[in-house]
Design a protein around this nucleic acid. Structure first.
Lengths: 266, 266
DNA sequence: CTCCGGTAAGTAAGTACTTACTTTTAATCA
DNA sequence: TGATTAAAAGTAAGTACTTACTTACCGGAG
């Protein structure tokens, strides 16, 4: 008993503002969702108890179940609140919208560096500003909840099509060499996402690499772009590898045409 | 139930006649560890019950606690069995050893492509041959268990030093441009690990990219290497970014420690 | 008064872990 | 050889506690 004194101030009848006394239903609902999201992201869905959520929200456990029929329901509320947002597909988010406009503008100019680093920076900023969401997503993927699938379809697939078709276009324009665009997208997003995950999840104490988001975005962009630009000596020639390496483009295009690599039904 | 007939035939120490139920202690211990590892990797440590482990091992729950004092103990047995193995640091593993020899040989020859694709291929093969371990690691990192930290220190740190110092050496030799080697390692491992995680964890149905480990290793290697090789027109010139991009090397070299000329061997 | 946000005190089904007991195995000894 | 014995593999049925979820009842604002 009286365990909630620490957090909620126990409705504190004192004249001062009671921090979490009585809330309107919708307000309380929001608060529970946000507390639950934090805890799910820390301990996973299975690893979080409704009692913990209640304690952190400063209410009794029964309140949770007044607002949400089941724990699973609470999870779905989080999805509704979060799943669709946060990626390039998020039209509602004004920040993401401005990034999209900026990136699409760079696309029109053919400024590959601005395109890639714009995307990378927007992803990294999102990851770092909302690390809980990254953890939530990872847990969701491991635990097999639908948040992961939803995020994948709503954001990742969109990004692959968006970036992939841009790369294809630039290849037709002769600016980029012939590599499977899907491989390039995977490589690029791999750098970015792995960097975020690493610095948020693993590399916290004694970090191997400390770099600002801006610098990281610039470096990654530079590596990938140099990696896929047509070289000085291969402007008009057949797309061949140099320096005695295997002509790696051949294989990739083969695996592309051979089956269902990358390109979907369209 | 004859659930236990599936795994681990019989005890075999004395003349046959073991009715497939009873095992020698060490054998049973091993079996429990392997069952637990599978379940932990599927549902996480918190999400797996000792009852489930017992059922899948075909014994009663009490047997688990005869072999392992606590559930946590069982987790530590998994660490002992798995944590140190599986990376470049694993000297016991003959396969990893041969890869290491191969890669070090390529390093001596200065064959950058063989170095990078050898490392990438070995990582990817390991991920795909033991996907449980990848999931276990991710769960471990999220749940804050020490397996993650141990793996990080024993494998990731080693790889960063190993690859990083090679890149630094090749930069001194004038073969690679001046980027922070740590950034390059992060970019490269990011491609590889993200690709593994993506294809194992997320991209299972309707995959965005289907590519063999060999092709992926070659493509990633090609992108990164072209990305960090000195360009045709910048052999002797000061290392500057081109195409109007910022000179991204500035920051990176600062954190690197500004390597002097001093060519080693090639 | 009467909603309605809030609580205390449940419940049944888990949870990790234990106890008390039986069966199998293999070495020992009359 | 074959009965004796002790240790180890195994089990059924617990214990104390936690879990998601319920029920019955407050009390202050409109």
């Amino acid at each position: 008993m009286s365990r909630q004194t620490e957090e909620a101030g126990r409705t504190a009848p004192a004249a001062g503002a009671s921090p979490a006394g009585r809330m309107a239903a919708e307000e309380r609902r929001q608060q529970i969702v946000s507390v639950a999201m934090r805890l799910f992201s820390e301990r996973g869905f299975r690893g979080t108890t409704t009692k913990e959520i209640a304690r952190d929200a400063g209410v009794s456990e029964a309140i949770i179940f007044r607002h949400f029929a089941t724990k699973e329901d609470l999870y779905h509320a989080i999805i509704d609140c979060k799943a669709c947002r946060g990626g390039m597909a998020d039209m509602q988010n004004p920040v993401a919208e401005s990034v999209r406009v900026e990136v699409e503008d760079a696309m029109r100019r053919g400024d590959d560096r601005a395109v890639l680093s714009g995307i990378a920076l927007s992803m990294m900023r999102h990851h770092h500003s909302d690390p809980d969401f990254l953890r939530l997503l990872l847990y969701s993927a491991l635990e097999g909840h639908q948040l992961a699938q939803m995020f994948w379809d709503l954001n990742v697939r969109v990004l692959y099509e968006f970036l992939g078709s841009y790369i294809r276009e630039r290849q037709r324009a002769g600016a980029l060499r012939e590599v499977d665009p899907t491989v390039v997208v995977r490589a690029f997003t791999g750098m970015v996402i792995h960097h975020s995950i690493t610095s948020i999840l693993w590399d916290t104490k004694r970090p191997l690499l400390v770099v600002s988001n801006e610098d990281a975005a610039r470096e990654f962009t530079e590596i990938v772009l140099r990696g896929i630009e047509v070289g000085a000596g291969e402007r008009e020639a057949a797309p061949k590898g140099r320096k005695g390496a295997r002509p790696s483009t051949r294989r990739a295009r083969k695996s592309n045409g051979q089956g269902r690599a990358g390109v979907k039904k369209s």
